[in-house]
Simulated assay, not measured.
Amino acid sequence: MKIDFKNFSIKKSVASAEFIKCDVRERFADVLYMAVNGIRAHTLAMKIFKSDGPTDYTYEEVMMIKRTAENFCTPAFIDGLRAQISE
């Protein structure tokens, strides 16, 4: 499954239908790096940080990304991630 952390869409507000595109690679990689234990989290954090546009992730990586986002990120980020995963 491909996820693009470089051109990540986030809603402007809960009531808005407008989105902004932003580069969340470093910020989300830092969440993984600082908050999730294990070498797999480290490897995934570096993969996201070094990514350049849509990047393929394994099922296991996507599950780690989803769990991390749901526990440590804003609802706006979670919605943006869900939108990409459901495409």
Rank of each mutant, 00 (worst) to 15 (best):
L32Y: 04
L32H: 00
L32A: 04
L32K: 03
Y33H: 13
M34V: 08
M34Q: 12
M34P: 08
M34C: 15
A35W: 08
A35G: 00
A35L: 14
A35F: 10
A35I: 05
A35H: 12
A35T: 11
A35C: 12
A35M: 15
V36W: 01
V36I: 13
V36A: 02
V36G: 02
V36F: 01
N37S: 09
N37P: 10
N37D: 11
G38Y: 04
G38P: 06
G38K: 10
I39D: 10
I39Q: 11
I39L: 08
I39K: 05
I39W: 04
R40E: 13
R40G: 14
R40M: 14
R40Y: 12
R40I: 11
A41W: 06
A41D: 03
A41C: 11
A41K: 06
H42I: 10
H42C: 04
T43L: 06
T43A: 15
T43R: 14
T43W: 02
T43F: 00
T43C: 13
L44K: 03
L44Y: 08
L44N: 07
L44G: 00
L44C: 06
A45G: 10
A45C: 06
A45L: 07
A45K: 01
M46R: 09
M46S: 09
M46T: 09
K47G: 02
K47D: 03
K47W: 02
K47E: 01
K47V: 00
K47M: 03
I48M: 14
I48K: 09
I48H: 06
I48C: 06
F49H: 11
F49D: 05
F49E: 08
K50Y: 07
K50C: 08
K50P: 04
K50D: 05
K50W: 11
K50T: 09
K50A: 09
S51E: 11
S51K: 08
S51Q: 01
S51I: 06
S51V: 07
S51D: 14
S51Y: 07
S51C: 07
D52E: 15
G53C: 12
G53P: 13
G53V: 12
P54C: 14
P54N: 11
P54T: 04
P54S: 12
P54K: 11
T55R: 11
T55S: 12
T55M: 08
T55Q: 13
T55W: 04
D56Q: 13
D56F: 10
D56V: 10
Y57M: 02
Y57V: 00
T58Y: 06
T58H: 03
T58F: 04
Y59M: 06
Y59L: 04
Y59P: 00
Y59G: 03
E60L: 01
E60G: 02
E60F: 03
E60N: 03
E60K: 01
E61R: 00
E61C: 10
E61P: 05
E61N: 07
